Computed example of a mutant assay.
Amino acid sequence: MCARAADPARTKPTERVPAAANPVMRALPAAGTRPALTRGPRPFPVRRVRQAFGVGRLLLAGLGVAALLGYFDYVLGFATFQIYNFYSYFTVQSGMAAVVAFVAGAIVAFRHTVDPPWLDWFRLLVTTYITVSGIVFLTIVIQSSNRDYTIEVPWSSQLLHFWIPAIALLDWLTDAGKARLPWKILAWGLVVPSIWGVFTLIRGSIVGWYPYFFLDPVQVSGPLETAVYCLVALTLFTAIAAVLTATSRLPQWMWRRGSTAE
């Protein structure tokens, strides 16, 4: 019989390479020392949020157009209605500017994750004007009971003076893409109201009609009281603009923590 050669693979034990001699094994940490995998917070979809802001601003612009048309139809029924008097109201002028600002803001929100400074300048001024218009109108409505006359507040007037300014303020405060605005905008914010006030006083003295009672020296105690009302209004414009400017200057990490553009 022929002797069968021994199989070295069966007779010799398998040699194991020590972990200390293996460079790959040395590079891996021990099983007990490996850090556990943790899942971080999901990045915030900035672009989707901006698109949502764009849709909301378009809806707000449509609401503004409906309110202006409804208010025009409402005052059209007055016996003393004059079309050029309608456009003399500061509420109407600021409401028309607000529609433009909402549309421009929507277009930018659809295309960019950050607003250009010029747009936020415009938005801040418009938001200030419609907010002050609402506050002044509310004051007039409250004071009407003390002056023995009643002011009707139709749905269009409610939208122009209360709802649209409130939503515009919310839009401004929650918008994380607005620019950091300088304090000098407070002075620029008084330019339009000052021009409007001077023009309205001169025009009122000529045609005998004023859009608001406190501008008419006959309906108040005289020119001095009218000047006081105007000073209070300018102070209110400055205060509202200052608050909006301050919110734009907050640290950006407060608005964009964990955010990413998708």
Rank of each mutant, 00 (worst) to 15 (best):
M1W: 03
M1K: 04
M1Y: 04
R4K: 14
D7L: 09
P18H: 02
N22P: 01
V24P: 00
V24A: 13
M25T: 08
R26Y: 02
A27W: 02
A30E: 14
G32T: 07
P35A: 14
R39K: 09
R39M: 11
P43F: 08
Q51A: 11
Q51P: 00
V55Q: 06
G56S: 12
L58I: 13
L60K: 06
A61W: 05
A66S: 10
A67R: 06
L69I: 13
L69M: 09
G70C: 11
L76M: 07
F78K: 11
F81M: 11
F81I: 05
I83A: 07
I83L: 02
F86G: 07
S88F: 05
Y89C: 04
V92N: 08
V92I: 15
Q93V: 10
S94I: 07
M96I: 11
F102N: 14
A106Y: 05
P116Y: 03
W121R: 13
L125R: 05
V132T: 12
S133P: 00
G134H: 04
V141S: 04
I142D: 14
Y149L: 12
I151V: 10
W155K: 11
W155H: 10
S157T: 02
I164E: 05
P165V: 06
A166W: 09
L173K: 06
A179H: 13
R180S: 15
K184H: 13
A187L: 15
V191D: 01
S194N: 10
G197P: 00
R203Y: 07
G204D: 06
V207T: 11
V207S: 10
G208E: 01
G208S: 01
Y210W: 13
Y212L: 07
F214H: 03
G222W: 08
E225F: 03
T226I: 01
V228Y: 01
V228K: 02
V228E: 04
V232D: 07
L236P: 05
F237Y: 09
V243S: 08
R249K: 14
Q252C: 02
W253G: 10
M254W: 11
S259A: 15
T260D: 12
T260P: 00
